[in-house]
Computed example of a mutant assay.
Amino acid sequence: MYQELNTVELDQEYGELLPARETLTWISINATNSSMAFNAASFDATAHSAAFQSIVVEVD
Rank of each mutant, 00 (worst) to 15 (best):
R21Q: 12
A40C: 08
Q3T: 15
S35L: 05
A47S: 02
T23V: 12
S34R: 08
V59Y: 09
T25C: 02
Y14W: 15
V57L: 09
A41S: 10
E4I: 07
E58I: 08
S54M: 09
E4A: 14
S54R: 15
F43W: 05
N30D: 15
I27D: 00
S54Y: 12
A41H: 10
A47V: 00
L18T: 06
T7G: 06
V57F: 03
V57R: 05
V56F: 07
I55H: 05
L10K: 13
H48E: 05
V56M: 06
T32F: 01
Y2W: 02
M36K: 13
N39V: 07
A45N: 05
L10Q: 11
S54G: 08
N33W: 13
D44S: 07
I29F: 03
E13L: 15
T23C: 08
Q3V: 14
D44Q: 05
E13I: 11
G15H: 09
L24D: 01
L10E: 11
D60H: 07
S35C: 05
V57M: 09
L18W: 01
F43G: 08
E16W: 10
W26Y: 13
L18M: 08
S34Q: 07
S54K: 15
M36H: 13
V57C: 08
A47E: 00
L18P: 04
V57S: 06
S34P: 00
G15T: 10
L24N: 03
M36W: 11
R21S: 12
L5A: 12
I55C: 11
E13W: 01
F52H: 10
F38I: 12
V57H: 03
E13K: 13
A41K: 12
A47F: 00
L24A: 06
L10M: 11
L5C: 12
E16T: 14
E4Q: 15
T46G: 00
S34N: 06
L17S: 10
E13F: 05
T23A: 13
S35F: 01
S28Q: 14
Y14R: 15
E9Y: 00
W26D: 15
A50K: 10
Y2Q: 01
L17D: 13
S42F: 08
T32W: 01
S34G: 06
M36T: 14
A31C: 04
T46R: 04
W26L: 14
Q12P: 01
A41Q: 10
L5M: 15
A31D: 03
S54A: 11
I27Q: 03
S34L: 06
L10G: 02
H48P: 01
I29K: 04
Q53H: 10
D11Q: 15
A37K: 05
L10N: 12
Q3I: 14
I55D: 02
T23E: 12
F52S: 09
A20P: 04
N6F: 06
F52M: 09
V56C: 03
Y14M: 15
T25G: 04
W26T: 15
N39E: 11
F43P: 06
Q3Y: 13
I55W: 07
V59W: 07
L10H: 09
A47L: 00
A31S: 08
I55P: 02
T46I: 07
I29L: 09
E4N: 14
E22Y: 02
I29Y: 02
A37D: 02
L5V: 08
L18I: 07
H48K: 03
T32S: 07
V59P: 00
